[in-house]
Design a protein around this nucleic acid. Structure first.
Length: 327
DNA sequence: CATCAGGGCCCTG
DNA sequence: CAGGGCCCTGAT
């Protein structure tokens, strides 16, 4: 029953120059994000099946520079030639999503001397936050994450891609592309339940409906201030403080908004920062108070500490994390 | 076999 | 503002 893959051709290639310093792998790959079938990373390269402005294209980003003199090669694969205007908007979107224009020096200047953070900054010099997906797509992922183990979240996303996505083949890879926001139909809840989303089916149905109704404008929200962004997110059915917190960082690039630490993160951060046993973690309020020292870069600071931990875990260090991750 | 909590959120009282 | 219920799954 699986739809055949759609074969794309290379239609465009260019070079993007991020601000320096730039750490390719630590920016293009986040070991703590659970894998979805629309994207694949290997050291020095990232592939993504990308829905953008009504088209489904394949994007390959390759590292062609160094930390101090960065350069990215971006290949676009598509069914047919793309207009210059489309390509320009796509490249601008890639610059935005991966924060290629972010200036890290103010953060490094303020936090580089911190005893806990300084060595981590040195290790990951040039790393930025970055997330490959749009607001709509991140909402889908966020809903799939809620109250579920990572394995189950992956199953939900696979079922969603196979039911509503499209399989694209480009650069000898097969990846699943997201569907258009708001395209799930008039009453998709029952269809989503069949995909075993459980009670999340209602959230996703209503989220998709909001996009279909034009009630969510990602471009406008990017320009809004933090309180307006947070209000808009929390106002969406199925989005609470945890999901909104992730979205404010990853989609809206708020680098100082930190008001919620969930139980699983609390256990991990308590161990990481205070060395406490996961059975007796530090209270979230105390963790938030600790991070106040990194204002106005609290989320950047957390991101550096967090990603460093997960990279170490991927290398077989920090194996205590195993017990705290419900794979 | 039954029970339960999970990388939340909504709704109710 | 606290607490119950929610879909399903794998762990116990």
């Amino acid at each position: 029953m699986e739809t055949p893959a759609s074969h794309l051709q290379l239609v465009y290639s260019t070079t993007l120059t991020p601000t320096s310093p730039f750490h390719f792998d630590a920016t293009l790959h986040k070991p703590d994000y659970f894998p979805t079938d629309d994207t694949h990373w290997e050291p020095g390269s990232r592939w993504q099946a990308l829905w953008w402005r009504g088209r489904q294209v394949g994007v390959v980003v390759r590292d062609r520079g160094t930390v101090e003199a960065p350069a990215l090669q971006v290949e676009v694969h598509a069914h047919r030639r793309l207009s210059a205007e489309y390509l320009a908007s796509l490249l601008a979107e890639i610059r935005y999503r991966y924060n290629l224009d972010l200036e890290l020096s103010p953060f490094y200047g303020a936090c580089g001397g911190d005893p806990a953070l300084g060595p981590v900054i040195t290790r990951w010099r040039g790393m930025r936050p970055g997330h490959p997906n749009s607001l709509y797509e991140y909402l889908v992922i966020g809903v799939a994450l809620q109250n579920a183990t990572v394995r189950r979240s992956i199953q939900m996303m696979q079922a969603l891609f196979r039911a509503h996505g499209r399989r694209l083949t480009f650069d000898a890879r097969d990846l699943w592309c997201f569907w258009a926001p708001g395209s799930l139909g008039a009453d998709p809840e029952e269809g989503l339940r069949v995909l075993k989303l459980g009670y999340r089916a209602r959230s996703l149905a209503r989220l998709d409906g909001a996009f279909a109704a034009g009630a969510v404008d990602e471009a406008a929200l990017r320009l809004a201030d933090l309180p307006a962004q947070r209000r808009a997110l929390i106002g969406l059915y199925g989005v609470g403080p945890a999901t909104a917190g992730y979205l404010l960082t990853d989609v809206f690039h708020q680098w100082d908004h930190l008001d919620h630490i969930s139980p699983w993160e609390q256990k991990i951060l308590s161990r990481l920062i205070f060395g406490t046993d996961p059975s007796d973690p530090v209270q979230p309020a105390a963790l938030l108070e600790y991070f106040a020292r990194y204002h106005p870069f609290r989320v950047l600071a957390l991101h550096y500490l967090w990603e460093d931990l997960w990279w170490r875990h991927d290398r077989g260090e920090a194996s205590w994390l195993d017990a705290l991750i419900r794979a």
